[in-house]
Simulated scan of single mutants.
Amino acid sequence: MKRRKKTKYVHEGRYVAEVDVELIEDESEWSPYLSVDDAYKLDDARGALRRGDLALASRYGRIYELRPVAHQ
C-alpha cells in the first residue's frame, strides 16, 4: 500500500477550500481512495463553507473567495 499527498478543492457558493489529503493506492479496484478521516475532513470543510463559518473551514485548509471578473 502506498500513500501520496494530494490537494482537493471544495467549492461552496462563493468560497473554495484548499484541503490537503492523502490518497491511498493499492491493488484493489477502488484505488486510489481517501481514508475515512480525510473524507470526513472534506465533508466538514464543505459544511462549514455552506454555513458561512469561515473560521471553522479554515481549520481544514486555505480559504479563497471567488469574485467575478468584470468584462471589458
Rank of each mutant, 00 (worst) to 15 (best):
T7W: 01
Q72E: 12
D44I: 07
E22H: 05
S35T: 15
D43N: 14
E27Q: 13
D20N: 06
R4W: 08
E12S: 01
L56N: 05
R14F: 01
K41A: 14
V16L: 01
G52T: 11
Y40C: 13
E12H: 00
V10C: 01
A48C: 12
K41L: 12
K2L: 13
W30E: 10
A55C: 07
R51E: 15
A55T: 12
V36H: 12
R4D: 10
L66Q: 13
I24K: 02
R50D: 14
L49I: 04
D37Q: 13
Q72L: 10
H71A: 12
K41P: 03
D38T: 13
R51M: 14
E65F: 04
Y64L: 13
E25K: 11
P68Y: 06
H11N: 03
R46W: 05
S58N: 13
I24H: 03
A57C: 09
E65Y: 04
L42F: 11
M1S: 10
W30C: 03
V16Q: 01
D53V: 11
R3L: 08
R4Y: 15
K8A: 04
T7E: 06
A70D: 12
D44K: 11
L42G: 04
E29N: 06
A17T: 01
R67A: 10
S28H: 07
D53N: 15
S35V: 12
E25P: 02
A70Q: 12
G61W: 02
K2R: 12
L54S: 09
D38Q: 12
V36T: 14
A17N: 00
A70N: 07
L56G: 04
A55Y: 08
L49N: 01
